[in-house]
Design a protein around this nucleic acid. Structure first.
Length: 356
RNA sequence: UUCGGGAUCGUCUAAUGGUAGGACACUGGGUUUUGGUCCCAGCAAUCUAGGUUCGAGCCCUAGUCCCGAAG
């Protein structure tokens, strides 16, 4: 008897093709639209209805059952509130990593399983690799298409979730192949544009989002590497380390944010591209998460601290019981606290943590 | 007050008396399931009033406003 797979249909091309491929492979496929956010914001209308309709159309085209899970309350609590609190604390969170951890591969997984699913699937560019021997565990691996790889967002998945998850898109060579499959299957989403911005919330600027949630912020000084005030900002929570635009500060050379002082509401910048505050060779991470086993401190791993950034060789050191120090082979542009560092072992995601 | 120096896109700054250019910012687009980075395009200026000159950002005169030194 065919296994039941609940596929998260977002209304985009990737998840549509996911469902189509699984059906072709002989699974009993059920499409599910997760409604996580539906609120319109000033100057921005939430695309959830259009996305829902596209998801539904795809289900009809594939002739599979379709249902909707309403996770708005939990998404608000686990993702949006977390995100807002991080910004208030002066860090820069990654809400989509939290969404994957809490919503897609926990809430959605659990709900689907209790609905009778054997497995779930999403349109992520990643691979779940089955153990070759009995001793080996289920591993999360980078997608075949290294350019589109999305494992950076998935490193907080659990082994238990991996055991129940399929990522058929991760086996494809390229986005172009996804597109052509969508065309071949005749899916309405074949030519749909990529969606960006905070997952589910859509293409609203984080700035507008925060203003809407928290109201206008207090202005403060922008201070350069010579302790000179070079401008005024409209709220230090809006800025992130490494940021260049949005400072409204001109003068020959670009200004990059090097630090924030939330207590005094100050934003520090530099025009020196080789400024020591703009580059770092060492990272400290907390909130550690390992998919299978923890790291081997003798090994050299590859790490990534930004989506799509090149992998960098690094060694891990125990910093405390709950934190880790990472020494990088090459310098990278300084990263804000709240962002994630993901540790790879030859294409396999070992785990990672949150920079502090 | 006096003596020097200066005034060019929003900002920083180029232009032997001969098409006012660049950078940053900003806006738009591209890349990107966070933030951000990066790439492309666009917008945009000679302090005012006279004068010399075929022609003035540039030379001359006056004014206005800045900055430095003398009070």
């Amino acid at each position: 008897m065919a296994k039941k797979v609940y596929v998260g249909l977002s209304g985009g091309v990737d998840s549509s093709v996911t469902a189509a491929l699984l059906k072709r492979q002989g699974y009993e496929v059920i499409g599910v639209y997760m409604k996580n956010w539906s609120k319109d914001l000033p100057g921005f209308s939430c695309p959830w209805k259009a996305d829902y309709q596209d998801a539904k159309r795809v289900a009809v085209q594939l002739n599979i059952p379709f249902k909707m899970y309403d996770f708005e309350t939990q998404y608000r609590q686990k993702v949006v509130d977390y995100m807002i609190n991080e910004y208030i604390a002066g860090r820069t969170p990654n809400p989509d990593i939290m969404c994957n951890q809490e919503v897609k591969f926990k809430l959605f997984l659990d709900t689907a399983l209790s609905d009778g699913a054997d497995l779930i699937a999403t349109g992520h560019y990643a691979r779940v690799v089955k153990p070759k021997t009995k001793n080996q565990k289920m591993g999360l691996f980078m997608a075949k298409d290294k350019v589109k790889d999305q494992t950076y967002f998935l490193y907080r998945m659990t082994e238990a979730a991996l055991n129940k998850t399929l990522f058929p898109i991760g086996e494809l060579k390229s986005k172009a192949e996804v597109r052509s499959l969508a065309k071949m299957f005749g899916l309405v989403t074949a030519h749909k544009k990529e969606s960006m911005g905070i997952c589910f919330v859509g293409k609203v600027g984080i700035r507008d989002f925060l203003v809407n949630e928290l109201g206008p912020q207090e202005t403060g000084s922008i201070i350069d590497q010579n302790d000179k005030i070079v401008g005024q900002h409209d709220g230090s929570i809006f800025y992130t380390i490494g940021q260049r635009h949005g400072l409204n500060t001109g003068g020959g050379l670009p200004y990059y944010v090097t630090a924030k002082d939330m207590h005094h509401n100050k934003v520090y910048v530099t025009t020196k591209l080789n400024d020591e505050n703009l580059w770092q060779k060492q990272l400290k991470i907390s909130d550690l998460h390992w998919i299978n086993d923890g790291p081997n401190f003798k090994k050299i791993y590859q790490i990534r601290s930004r989506h799509r950034a090149p992998l960098i060789h690094a060694k891990l050191y125990k910093d405390s019981n709950s934190t880790l120090k990472i020494l990088l082979e090459d310098e990278i542009k300084t990263i804000s606290g709240g962002q994630s560092t993901v540790i790879y072992d030859n294409g396999m995601v070992l785990g990672g943590g949150i920079i502090y």
